[in-house]
Amino acid sequence: MPEVMFRKDHNDKLIFYVAKKDLEETIASLEFESPEKWGGEIVLSDGQRYYLEPLPAQPKLPITLRVKRV
């Protein structure tokens, strides 16, 4: 259950960052990205998959959240 910081980079791409693991990847897809549901399965651009318990609203980025490995 790594702690992940989600942020937008300068090109407005969603970035997945885990300080402990030096992992800085763009998020290729996020399952739910609507105003009332945000999260679900995350696919990184290098193919790794994680799962984020969906949030009831779109969070203010950047934000640090716990995710699960899939």
């Binding site: 910081m5 942020r7 960052y17 300080a19 203010k60 950047p62 934000i63 640090t64």
Partner: peptide
């Protein structure tokens, strides 16, 4: 970079 990431999250200060 760690502290600037923190400031971005806590205070909303962007960094480049």
């Amino acid at each position: 970079n760690y502290i600037t990431r923190h400031m971005e999250e806590k205070y909303g200060i962007p960094w480049i």
